[in-house]
Amino acid sequence: MDIFLQQLVNGLTIGSMFALIALGYTMVYGVMKLINFAHGDLVAGSAFVGLFVFTQLLGGQVSVLVVVGVFILTIITIALLGFTIERLAYRPLRSAPRLSAVVSALGASMVIQNGIMLLWGPQMHIFPELLPTIIWDIGGVVVSLIQVLIMALSMILMVGLYLFVEKTKIGTAIRASAIDQDAARLMGINVNNIIVTIFLIGSSLGAVGGLFIGLYYRGITFNMGWQYGLYAFVAAIIGGIGNIPGAMLGGILLGLFNAFIAGYISSTWADAFTFILLIVILIVRPTGILGERVAEKV
């Protein structure tokens, strides 16, 4: 039972991170039908930008204000980077065949990844300890302050995003653009602006995910975007790519699955089982758990 509860906490923590990152994939896919392969590298970039902002810009002394500053400045930087990628790598290809955009996405991914390597080198960096190491032992289950923060902040962001997309005018315009871009234009929706909005939101959430990875795992490398990006991408597919609640659900489920495999079987096998899970889900429900919201007659 202890292992179960412990892995539940761990799984929810990493699942929250997967979910935040998966949202970036799924929102872009929803409207543009494009896998933004550069998204994972933005996540990696976020951890490095966070490191830079903390040590170089804000003096390297931990305080509440500094931590908030690290988050805000990093999110702004990564959001602008996401905006730039959309402008340079995707917008010129808006009417080109889909494959061209995919190749462009792979190119953008490599540019960012190598850019991080040029700036920070190929060695592993240690992300600063921005939060005090507070650990609670609740009846044998160990929970850290970082885990609580990751889970709570992720939950707030996801609920906020959900309400934004479901209840606001821009959110409705985002959903309309995802269904039919031409019909959205006929409503007077500037679809280009919607795409920019999506990139800003997706990159910002990815930036938070990257900072969480730094806080939680500490060791950050220039190429870690592939690994976390792949996990988040799998989460987005499991939930149903293009579907926002699906990405949240897929992320949490994947995190739990991973943690339980690591807890009960072996952490070396966690990756292998993750992909077995992906294959099984693709066989049973090719559109993912929440994909293909079938309209039912009432």
């Binding site: 959903r175 309309a176 269904i179 039919d180 019909a183």
Partner: peptide, 10 residues
């Protein structure tokens, strides 16, 4: 538009 193009899942 032709074909109605309503937003089907809204």
């Amino acid at each position: 538009p032709e074909g109605r193009r309503v937003f089907n899942i809204l």
